[in-house]
Structure formats: C-alpha cells, structure tokens
C-alpha cells in the first residue's frame, strides 16, 4: 500500500502525539475509513490496527464470516503504519509482497485486530510479521502474514543495511 507522504517527523513526537497524528493519517485513507479501521497503538516499528465485524464485509453468507480480503486490507494497512513508525524509516512506503496464512474463520460479530512488527530493516526494505486476532480469549490467530515493504531510510548514510 503506497502511503501519503505527509507524516514526516512523526518519529520525534511524544507517544500521545504520535498516536494522534497517525490516527489522522489513517483517517485520511478512504479505504481504511470504509472499513472503519481504528489505530490502537503505534511506535518503534510496531502498530496495532483493528476493525469491527461488518455485515458488508461478509464473504460467506451462510456463516457470516468476514471475507479474507478485508482481513488482508487490515493487515496491509497495519504493516504500512508500522513501517512509517520505525525510527529509521522515511516517510513513504509501499507493499512489495504480502503472504497471508488463514488459520481459522474469524468469529462473526467480533472485532478483528492486526498487530504488525518490523523485524528487520535494510536500507531499502522493511520485513514485517503480522498477526490478526479476534476476541476469542487465548485463541489461535485468525491469520498471520509476512511482508516486504519498500522504505527510504531517514539518513541513508547512517546505517549499513543491505537488501
């Protein structure tokens, strides 16, 4: 997911201001708004983003289970936010690839939350892991994903990443 480039300097904000700025940033994405995504936490290359169960997103009318595509949209957006919150990442990112494993059906009526984490950053690429859960206590994740996202380092000469 290519990102708007108006989030510069977010890494220097206090945690509260960062969450506030990042929420405004997510709210400016029409598709995130259409799916009622809400940013719950962000910072240091990690982000948590959630969305409510919604009748319009149902993929199997016999069970009321949300379509996997909507969950992938949540995980993709969450990943982009995590990349931009990384202290060494720049202000623009785009998804190169995203592989999603669907472990089980999300329980109808329950909120779905995605947690994304940048586990490695090079000069040009951020590698991410994402886990999506519903409200089942201690349950198996609904889905997991790994992704590669483009990054522009804030100061290209300061760190010796490779990709």
């Amino acid at each position: 997911m290519p990102q708007p480039s108006d989030i510069s300097g977010v890494q220097d904000l206090s945690p509260e201001d960062l969450l506030h700025t990042a929420r405004a940033f997510i709210a400016a994405i029409p598709h995130a708004r259409a799916l009622n995504m809400r940013l719950d936490a962000i910072g240091g290359g990690k982000a948590t983003l959630s969305m409510p169960w919604d009748e319009r997103l149902v993929g199997d009318p016999r069970t009321g289970v949300i379509h996997g595509g909507a969950i992938s949209a949540l995980m993709d957006t969450c990943s982009g936010a995590a990349v931009l919150s990384h202290p060494e990442a720049g202000t623009v990112t785009a998804t190169l690839d995203l592989r999603i494993d669907y472990m089980r059906s999300a329980t109808p009526g329950q909120r779905i939350a995605a947690r994304a984490e940048v586990y490695h950053l090079t000069r040009t690429i951020a590698f991410l892991r994402v886990v999506a859960t519903d409200e089942e206590a201690g349950g198996v994740p609904v889905a997991t994903a790994t992704g590669a996202f483009t990054v522009e380092r804030r100061s290209p000469d300061s760190t010796g990443g490779r990709a």
Binding site: M1, I29, H31, G69, A73, L74, A94, L98
Partner: peptide, 8 residues
C-alpha cells in the same frame, strides 16, 4: 489501496 486490490 493494496488491500482492496488484493481482496479483488
């Protein structure tokens, strides 16, 4: 949105 096109 990459999520929307992936869903498509």
């Amino acid at each position: 949105h990459g999520g929307a096109t992936a869903a498509f």
